[in-house]
């Protein structure tokens, strides 16, 4: 039987909390940017304008075809150089958080775009037809008729994707950024107590994500009722 030793955790709590804040920051920004950019991509993809729909499809497929770990790695190595040449931000500033945020936002947008596209497709064709027949323009019909219904259908999925994203932030370990998981791993590695720290991290993730998914469910019931 394994000898558990939890003594590393109390002293590490401030560091773990700082990591949790980083995780929340990345998640919040990526969800916000991801939904906005994802909606635009979904509309572009279904717009019927060839160039736009090709661009959107290319974007979505590109980001969906590469593992997140690789995307993070690339952005971590490239964003600093880009920031320097485009915005002339000195390379000496810490760009790890910025590059992780950019990577997550752009990456998640591809996933949001697919959810939103499926949401729009779940609205019966007749709705669009009816709106157009009432004399609305395409944009009006999309904004006033299709999107509100689509979002209502997909709010639970969008929120669930947010929860997935919250968990995926654990992959920023490739850039040594101390998010919550990274912090737990580092403490465990330093003290030779990896098993304990990872179980602890798992329990914390579970509590947070489970509570969040209960809230999503409650919200879902409200919307449907």
């Amino acid at each position: 039987m394994y000898e558990f030793d939890w003594s590393s955790i109390p002293g590490a709590l401030p560091f773990l909390w700082a990591g949790m804040k980083t995780t929340l920051e990345i998640t919040a920004l990526a969800v916000a940017v991801g939904i906005v950019w994802g909606t635009l991509l979904a509309i572009m993809r279904m717009s019927g304008i060839r160039l736009l729909s090709w661009f959107a499809a290319g974007y979505v497929n590109l980001f969906r075809s590469i593992p997140l770990v690789m995307v993070l790695l690339w952005f971590f190595l490239i964003v600093p150089a880009l920031m320097e040449s485009v915005f002339s931000i000195p390379r000496t500033s810490d760009t790890r958080l910025a590059s992780a945020m950019v990577a997550f936002a752009l990456f998640e947008a591809a996933y949001y775009a697919e959810i939103i596209r499926a949401g729009i497709q779940s609205v019966h064709k007749g709705q669009m037809g009816a709106a157009l027949a009432l004399g609305m323009s395409y944009g009006q019909a999309m904004r006033l008729v299709v999107l509100p219904q689509a979002f209502r259908n997909m709010v639970p999925l969008l929120l669930t994707q947010g929860i997935i994203l919250f968990q995926d932030t654990s992959l920023v370990y490739v850039s040594s950024l101390a998010d919550f998981f990274g912090a737990a791993y580092k403490v465990g590695d330093r003290d030779g107590r990896l098993v304990e720290l990872l179980l602890f991290a798992g329990a914390v993730y579970f509590l947070i994500c489970f509570s969040a998914s209960l809230l999503v469910k409650r919200f879902q019931k409200k919307v449907i009722a």
Binding site: Y2, I163, S170, F181, V195, L198, G202, Y205, I208, S213
Partner: peptide
Amino acid sequence: ELFRNIPLLVQLFIWYFVLPE
């Protein structure tokens, strides 16, 4: 709920390192 609310990375570690113990 159990499998969706814990990051894959953590789950993998639990399967490989923790479960046998």
